[in-house]
Structures are given as C-alpha cells and as structure tokens.
Write a protein that binds this DNA or RNA. Sequence first.
RNA 1: GCAGGUGUAGCUCAGUUGGUUAGAGCGCCGGUCUGUGGAACCGGAGGUCGGUGGUUCGAGCCCACCCACCUGUACCA
Length: 514
Amino acid sequence: MAKTDKPTDQPSDTKKSDRPKARLPRGLADRTGAELSATRAMLEKIRGVYELYGFEALETPAFEYTDALGKFLPDQDRPNEGVFSFQDDDEQWLSLRYDLTAPLARYVAENFDKLPKPYRSWRAGYVYRNEKPGPGRFRQFMQFDADTVGAPSVAADAEICMMAADTLEAVGIPRGSYVVRVNNRKVLDGVLEAIGLGGDENFGRRLTVLRAIDKFDKFGAEGVALLLGPGRKDESGDFTKGAGLNDREIATVLSFTSHNSTSGAAPLLDWKRLISTSEIGTEGIDELLQIEELIQAAGYSDRVKIDPSVVRGLEYYTGPVYEAELTFEITDEDGRPVRFGSVAGGGRYDGLVARFRGEKVPATGFSIGVSRLLAALAALGKLDADAEIGPVVVLAMDKEPARIADYMKMVADLRANGIRAEMYLGGAGMKAQMKYADRRGAPAVVIQGSNEKAAGEVQIKDLVEGARIAASIADNAEYRAARPAQLAVPETEMVAAIRAILERRAQGTLGLAD
RNA sequence: GCAGGUGUAGCUCAGUUGGUUAGAGCGCCGGUCUGUGGAACCGGAGGUCGGUGGUUCGAGCCCACCCACCUGUACCA
C-alpha cells in the first residue's frame, strides 16, 4: 500500500467502524490442506469397510422440512433452539439436519415401495446442531452412518457392532485401544420396572435415572449414586437435582450398571434372574444373549462387549444400543489426561420410519463422529500427515513482459511433465519470493535473472537441502554467498533437474523419521 | 440454561493513586540486495483498550448493564 501522510487517503470508502470484522462464527471451523486430505483418506477407509459389508451409498440434502426431521419443531419465540431453522417462501419451516438418521427415515418412507427390504445404506456428511460449542464440539460436524432398515433380527445389530470394530481398525485404531460396548434399552426398562418406575406417570424420573446411568464413566459409582439419590454438586458449586431414589433402589440400579464390560453368557444369566419379574427386561436379556452368541461365533468377543451402563439417545432407541469407545489416554500440552471417549454409537430405532408410515419398520444403525475420530487419530500419531509438497516456484526476477513470458513458458514445461509448478505472481522482490516459496512448501525454485538468461541457463535451488545446509551457516554474508543446494543448468535441462530433486525428496521423506 | 473465571495489536503481555498522542517482544508486510528462505539492519501496516451507559475537568483504570471467550455443569436427537 502507498505511504500516506493523511488519513483521507484511505483506499476504502467505508469508515473503519463500518467495515465488517473478518471472523468465523463460533462453533465452526475452517479446514485446510493436511487436515482435509487426512479426512478424505479416513472417509475412504470407512467407506471401504461399509461397502464390504454390503451397504450402498445414499446422499440426502443438508436440510429438510422440519416436521420430517422429528420432534424438534421450532416455535415462534425460539425457532432455532437446538436446530437451525428458517422459513421457505410458502412459510413452511425447514431445518438443517442434526443427524443422518432422520433424513434416512424420511427417504425410506418416501421410497418404500422401490427399495429392497432390508434396505442397507451408508451416508456421510455434515450435520448441524445449534448448541453451545466446546473443545471438540462444533455446530457443524461430520457423521458417517450405516443403517439396516427392515430387519427385525438382532443379527442386524450384532453385524453393525462387528462392522464398527472393523472400521475402527481400518482407520488405524489398534485392537485393544477401543471397545464396542453393547446394551439393550429393554434391560434398562426392566431395571426401572423393578424399582417401581414403570408407567407413564414416572416418565420424567425414568429419564433422570437413565441420564444418571449415562454419566458412569464421567463421575463413577459415587457420582451416579448421588445423581440417582439427592443430587450432586459440581466443582463450581452448581447443584444438579437427583432422581430421589432410596438407598435400596440405588443399589439395585448400581448392581446392574456398575459392572464393567463383560463377555460370556454367565453375567447375563445373573442379571436375568435379578429382573425376572419384568417381561421387557427378560426379553432384553434374551436379545443380548443372542447378540453375545453371534459375536462369539464370529470371533469378536475381545472387541465387542456387553455393558449395562450404555444408555444413548433417550427417547429414540427401542432395543439394542451400542457405543464405540477409545480406551487409550493421551495427555494434552498441560499434562492433563484427555479421554476421547465415545467416537461412534447407534442402536435400534423401530419407531422412526413408523412416524411416516404408521406401520412399524424395524431398523438399526450406527454413526461415526468423523471429526472426533480424526482428532483421536491425530493424537495417536496415525494420521498420514506428511506435509504437502508445494509447487515448484519459478521466481519472477525481471518484470518486463518478454521475461514474464519466459517464466510462464518454464512453468508450462514443468506442468506438461506432470510437475506442480507456478510462477510467482506477486509484486515483491527476490527475498520475498524466496519466503513465499518456503511458505508454500515448494521443493525447489527456478531462478533466471538477466545473467542466467544471457548464458541460456537457469539456477535451480533445492529448498529442502538448502535449509539443511543453511542451518550450519551462522554468518549472513557467508550464507548468501554460499548459495547452498543450488546449481546452474542449461535451460533445456531444467525439467530433468527438477525431477531429480523431486525424486530425491520422495525417497528422503521415508528416511526422515529419525 | 446454571455456576465460577477472563476480556489492552494476529499472539504473549506491560500500562503508575484516574492525567497529554496507549507501549514492548514475537509475528506479519516491504526494503537494504543481480538478487537467495533462517540471522542482522532499516522502514511499514495493525488498537474506537470487548460493547453501551454512568461518575469525573479528565476513564484502558471507578460503577452498572450487556456481549464474547474459558472451565465446570445441564441438555445432547
């Protein structure tokens, strides 16, 4: 920008206070190079597993009619509570999807007659939730779902649990560093019945109890007991009201849910005796026994385990529920342990399609939180995070049109040979151009001033090698004079020389681990 | 939503008992340089001190309200 001595020379006709502030809305994120390619690679791996299991692709739009999405209808005062909503020309409410299951239910209901049953599909895409963002929690995030619609058998549930395990391993989570935990909502219902919380009038308290159980991994048995009983006070002194159960009832609930993940039929049979008075509970246990049997037969017992503390979506799931949890711990930069917890979850939702069709359509599905899984992989060091190799940069040493044409020709030659290349298009001098090339991650630059031009040569500098050599040169004058990792070649050999550098770089990357 | 905390340049922070034109380091942009990334030197951009209102001759500093962010918690399809 030109030097100015008067503020009236402002190039913009807007006053500073009128200019918008360049800022990202909270809870959203920009993503660039390495992260994007890592995401792409991960999505490909997940897709590979899903398709191997026989699921087919489906894409639905980012928004739907609000009533098709479910119970989160906007009201006049707070139309965007929880979901982002807006009105169409004809006043109908539309909402951004908050998961990929509700749109699937709509799609299946709308196309029911055309689809093979069971219908097995996968979907990947961004979903939107208008809630308070936090670390690792965004208002736009990606999910990757697979669902089987029209299959009443628990074999469909067992299959999805096994697929979840295969998927986590495919993206690089080692066996033993995760567990897929399975429960059955019917068992929890049976427990609730056993402590006298059956019936419509206890709906609210049932929710409170289930929410308390869901906090097991966060607060432990004592914390959950407080939430089941009188309530719990957190670190800031804020108080959470409890479910008001008495000691015996609390003990009953905990006798189920405080078990760690298990496998084998024995504990299940114990639990079955405990809730033998409850018909629904007994049914739930029987389903879990079947799942356990299928999992054992397929050899997944070390990865997929029964765990009666899994709760998941409260008013949503009707049978088996599952959750994939990462079990390793990582410490953050402050040395505090970070748990990633659940990276995927799902369950059976026999009521969702019925909303549209009246008749029950049993379905079971599973959703991976792509962003969270990606963060976990990054922490594990499992991301293919080789820094992207930038383009070869041809420096614009002279700015006359004829010379620019020369540089453009060089770039064209490189591109014709499949080498990523560009001419420096900015207005700055050579030093700034070198900085630019450095920042772009360029493997090499091509330099041709008038001297080189007269000699029919170009200077080619290997930036990676150059940086290495430069590290041992302290004095600036010496550094400049040395021109490290730079060689002059005839113009006709420019492409070959660049290619040699790129090949050396590609090999060097493998050995750079030390 | 609730509870607690924090707001001065892109980042990390100074800023006297309230007193002229709000500073530093790092970063950023450019130059010194027919030339070379890092280093050095020189120059530059960048702040209505989170916002609004109040007290005062005078507010970055005091008061009120609001907003944003952080931590915990609630909710989470």
